[in-house]
Amino acid sequence: MTTLAVPRFLPVFKIPLLDRIAYPATAVFVLIALVGPWIAPHDPYQVDLNQALLAPGAGHWLGTDSAGRDILSRLLAGARTTVLSSVVVTVGAAVVGIVVAAVAALGGRVVDEVVMRVCDIFLSIPGMILALGVAAALGPSLRSTIIALVVALWPAFARLVRAVLRETMASTYVESARTLGVPPGRLMLRHVLPNSLDSLYVQAALDVSGVIVLMSGLSFLGVGAQPPSADWGAMVADGREYVTTAWWVATVPGLAITLTAVVFGLFGDALRVRLDPTLGD
């Protein structure tokens, strides 16, 4: 198997427990992200200054923000932006990474060297700074955030995938396919990739949780989704003025970000335990 330097997310969990929590929790979060806007009790965009900064209570379970909008409704509406765009970012970065790594693996020593040095350059810039720069250059919007994060994250995937591909390329069944005369494209698609991607799924699931935090960070800094759209990071940013007077405005979306990140982290771990025979029973 591959050697991945990914730390276990929560090593204290036993495997069956991990399974029992991780899969349903992930399903629930994805479901919320999909149907969130329709189950919101209030209109997430309805400004009502008379209702501003209400504490959590009967009418508004999680309180209201400075414009009197219902925080629970905004959370549910924002779940789609936050969770789905994180998934989009991760899938995008993974796809770019796989393609680049496959080209490097098939292209010979020179191509491989060039591709990897390009990755090194990207990796030498901290992801958040790189994403911030790209997002700012493209103009603040959700779309720019997604593009920026893909740009920031693909080199890590490319590196990981390349390492795994190299190992798979050296396996006997790939060599035997080569001696059989299997052409390079088919070799990659039928023999190398299917046997290399297990560790990538795990990495991707673990990465979603990181991407949620990164995306929220970008929104918080003002280069992400723009007001009045209900983005969790932007919601935290909105609430920061009132942290001492109305703690729930920033804390509730902050907790939502944390919880979602944890759930996807657990999902990644559960997946890894399932796919990696050396960690399982």
Partner: peptide, 20 residues
């Protein structure tokens, strides 16, 4: 050559693609 010369490897546990 690629068709005319075929090979059987030592370790049959490693030489067959597990996903085919």
């Amino acid at each position: 050559f690629r068709r005319g010369v075929q090979m059987v490897f030592q370790d049959p546990y490693a030489s067959l693609n597990p996903r085919m």
